[in-house]
Design a protein around this nucleic acid. Structure first.
Length: 458
RNA sequence: GGCGCCUUGGCGGAGUGGCUACGCAGCGGCCUGCAAAGCCGUUUACACCAGUUCGAUUCUGGUAGGCGCCUCCA
């Protein structure tokens, strides 16, 4: 188990995770009013892989990624679709699960939904009212920002510089502009509502995360994550709610940068989105994952067709590496292997550097550089254990499948390949090329080598 | 206007006070019947101006440009 350091948004400093306690990670998931896009997939991938890495180091980790399924935009989108909002949200949640399943990274340990947390939300709001941190007004309940001295500490703002920007109708109900809603009374056109001490209504944004995080991880947990666009107001408000109610809340705040399209943040409201499902269809899951770990999680990441094609090429280079290794490992003189590449690092030190990069603020691009260094070394000279080490490194970033055999050729392809070999032996190259074209049409690429031809699935 | 971040070779993207990141693409080779894969070489990268320093892409200050949040947002 090595020391794992993470840059903390709240303190601005690098914090070391406590190895003696379970590392509870709460990452904000999507609001399900449409299919998720590549940008939404970034935190899912980053935090899934981060939890996987922690476990591989011997930490106990518990990953929670919520689904916010009550929201103004859900009402609006459901109305546009001519559906009930509950059914609409359920369908979008299912689509989210389906899309992220295709990433092949497994599921989080818990995926709580706001609609299944209403009782806890009502209880926390009541507690905040009792403590003087919130007040009821016209069936709504608002958080009294002035009652929480630490307000602004996460996003480093002063309250007087801020504006919660609530909808116009709420202006008259709030004591101060800065106050934000915890509970909203049911309004015209809203087809879901829950009973509460303040009348029928539904939770506002922010409060559900305070409740779900505590319910799944306890009042105090290690890491709270999410996109950097959630720092304010979402996470700032979560802190205000939870800490005002006496919960210590998260130790470290870990925010991922935005995915940019043409230099601008990809977002549903900008309309410059590229859906995750489409990216998976076009480039494959490995390329999508490889793309999302190609930059440091905290930095913005440029998105575009070229970037995705590059990810495809990277992933193909890794596949080719394993194809080559499969043949190389079958023979080989041990003494020859022992010499290995002169000056090349043994796989163990690459693996070590790989893990160290991940332990250092989860630096995936630096870690991947180690993978490619080892791949290059092993492509040049036989490096004993390289294939296994690369497979293990890739396993940690969800790309183990690149090491798997693509499947044996069928008998038809094998026969064609033999015919081509016969033709080549007879120097009948035009016939050999013709057969190669036929194989290509069947989805097989022929690669000749000193050890003979090889069929590769395209 | 407030807060924060960024500016690295054709593109993406790490990192460091002095040593080739890495990947993709291009060009030239090697290998090959040809191709693919792989390998080798290659196009004097660190926005600009000062300062600190023996030495700065890396530290400090400033200039220019860009981005994010301050409204829903991963």
């Amino acid at each position: 188990m090595r020391e794992v350091r993470i840059r903390d948004t709240l303190s601005g400093a690098v914090q070391t995770l406590d190895p003696d306690h379970e590392v509870g990670i709460y990452a904000c998931g999507p609001t399900v009013y449409s299919r998720i896009h590549i940008g939404n997939a970034r935190p899912f991938v980053i935090f899934s892989l981060f939890a996987r890495f922690l476990r591989s180091e011997g930490y106990k980790a518990r990953l929670v990624i919520n689904v916010t399924d009550i929201n103004d935009k859900i009402y609006a989108a459901a109305a546009r679709a001519g559906e009930g909002s509950a059914a609409f949200a359920a369908a979008m949640t299912a689509a989210y699960i389906h899309d992220t399943d295709r990433l092949g990274l497994g599921r989080p340990d818990a995926e709580p939904k706001a609609t299944e947390t209403i009782d806890g939300i009502v209880a926390l709001i009541a507690e905040l009212i009792a403590g003087g941190h919130a007040y009821e007004s016209g069936g709504d309940v608002y958080f009294r920002v002035r009652s929480f001295p630490g307000y602004g500490k996460l996003s480093n703002r002063r309250p007087e510089d801020m504006d919660q920007g609530e909808e116009a109708g709420a202006a008259g109900l709030k004591e101060e502009r800065l106050d934000f809603a915890l509970w909203k009374a049911t309004k015209e056109g809203e087809d879901t509502s829950w009973d509460s001490p303040w009348g029928p209504g539904r939770p506002a944004w922010h409060i559900e995360c305070s409740v779900m995080a505590e319910r799944e991880l306890g009042a105090s947990f290690a890491v709270h994550g999410g996109g950097s666009d959630l720092v304010f107001p979402h996470h700032e408000n979560e802190i205000a709610q939870s800490e005002s109610a006496g919960r210590p809340f998260a130790h470290v705040w870990m925010h991922n940068g935005m995915v940019d399209a043409a230099g601008e943040k990809m977002s549903k409201s900008e309309g410059n989105i590229f859906q995750l499902s489409e990216a998976l269809d076009r480039y494959g899951r490995e390329a999508v994952v490889a793309y999302l770990i190609s930059g440091h999680y905290r930095q913005p990441l440029a998105f575009g067709g070229r970037q995705m094609e590059e990810a495809v090429a990277r992933v193909e280079r890794l596949r080719n590496f394993f194809r080559g290794q499969a043949g190389a490992s079958s023979g080989g003189d041990p003494a020859e292997q022992q010499r290995g590449g002169s000056g090349g690092s043994p796989p163990e030190s690459r693996f070590e550097a790989f893990r160290e990069a991940l332990a250092d603020d989860f630096n995936t691009p630096r870690a991947m550089a180690e993978v490619f260094e080892l791949v290059g070394e092993a492509n040049r000279d036989e490096v004993p254990g390289a294939a296994r080490a690369v497979a293990e490194m890739l396993d940690l970033v969800g790309l183990r499948s690149l090491a798997e055999d693509q499947g044996a050729a069928d008998s038809e392809a094998e026969q064609l390949l033999q015919e081509r070999e016969d033709a080549r032996a007879a120097k009948d190259f035009s016939r050999a090329d013709e057969i190669r074209d036929r194989l290509a049409a069947l989805g097989w690429e022929v690669r000749d080598s000193a050890d003979g031809p090889r069929l590769v699935r395209r």
